[in-house]
Nucleic acid binder design. Structure first.
Lengths: 210, 210
DNA sequence: AAAGCTGTGTAACCAATGTTACTGTATAAG
DNA sequence: CTTATACAGTAACATTGGTTACACAGCTTT
């Protein structure tokens, strides 16, 4: 366990903090598409991502979803962080996009480390910075782009996070995450295929033109 | 100056920090609709809001705007904060919504205070938390609401921040900030007026049904 | 092989939003 | 007072995206 923490965070944290993390953190593993945090959950620990990728989703009253962004190795969820500090409930849903390992830090340590370790403070600030940037990007996407452009961005992001040009996803799944309908997605995907940007298969899409 | 800082932040910061703020901070005043920060500006100081209100806007490549959220007394701009720490350029535009007083803190002090004052750390974390919440709210609004609902929310928020049910704004101005066209806004406003939710005048709108 | 389920393709239609064009009216400038 | 300008109302139309309905193809189960 110590080794995995070291691999993912050695460039960020000092030796002593890495040790502490290994001591008090609990390792957790999630399978693809397994739920990690649900909206309304009480947050009692903060996750540090060791490997894999997590997708962060927002949901409205009617149960309509929207994909916000992905987290990767070395990231933490600033939302959760935020909830920890404010002792509030989770505002988002987190699901494993790929098989994921993470280490959970009890919230009691947060405050302590924040005053004790400069590297921890910087990490927390940096996380907030990244998350704000991601949120801005998400806002740009839904405010300024049309569906076809959003779809292309979705596919590119998905291909990137999975490190694979063959995106394993159904049209229905895309529709959920982009908060639109399956028919709309099928229609636009077909157009993209005709343009030669992608190739369509059952249950997967080959992204050609990156 | 010391008094104004004290008024707005005495419940947040300890005496010693309030003193330091008064010493190193520079007081700045902005008139209504005056530009405070522009996209791409290099950020060299962090603002603490003493009085008034600021609106934060995002812009795309084509110059299309979108209102993100408002800041009030006691707030700071977590975006700017984020830029300070990351030494990056501003991602947003800030404009005075009402006559505004703020005190600018040189970024050099940021790091120092972060380790020195617990209250400062908490303030910074709290600011990030608020901003993330506002951003989520913004995303909910543009992703899940129709134009008519968004418009109503816009008017309510505007009335609230100006502490006045008579919102001084033109249809064109609303269209800019909501990233749509003037005709669409005029159309929807007329519908709302017929329903008795608002009353329309030249250059202003009376919000009736809060 | 037959039945059943899930995923995809597509047409036809509808609703929401965006665009163009023109009107009138209040206010400001000359 | 006259002219110019900014603001607002509205019709007609275009486009985008959402809905309904149905056909069919590829697996899986029996």
């Amino acid at each position: 366990m110590v080794q995995e923490v070291f691999d993912a965070y050695s460039f960020v944290f000092e030796e002593e903090l890495l040790e502490e993390i290994s001591e008090v953190g609990t390792l957790k593993e999630f399978k693809e598409n397994e739920r990690i945090i649900e909206i309304g959950d009480h947050v009692t620990a903060m996750p540090l991502l060791l490997s894999g990728a997590i997708k962060i989703l927002r949901e409205d009253q009617d149960g309509d979803e929207l994909l916000l962004y992905f987290l990767e190795r070395g990231d933490t969820c600033a939302m959760t962080l935020s909830c920890c500090l404010g002792h509030t409930k989770s505002e988002i849903r987190a699901m494993a996009e790929t098989p994921t390992k993470l280490i959970m830090i009890p919230i009691e340590k947060m405050e302590e480390w924040t005053s004790k370790y400069k590297s921890w403070r910087n990490f927390v600030f940096e996380s907030y910075h990244s998350r704000l940037s991601e949120m801005l990007d998400t806002i740009d996407t839904i405010a300024f782009l049309n569906m076809d452009e959003r779809l292309l961005k979705y596919l590119r992001d998905k291909a990137k996070i999975n490190q694979n040009d063959l995106v394993q996803v159904t049209h229905q799944q895309i529709a959920y995450e982009m908060h639109t309908s399956r028919v709309v997605i099928s229609r636009l995907l077909k157009k993209l295929e005709l343009k030669g940007t992608i190739a369509l298969n059952r249950n997967s899409i080959q992204v050609i033109d990156l």
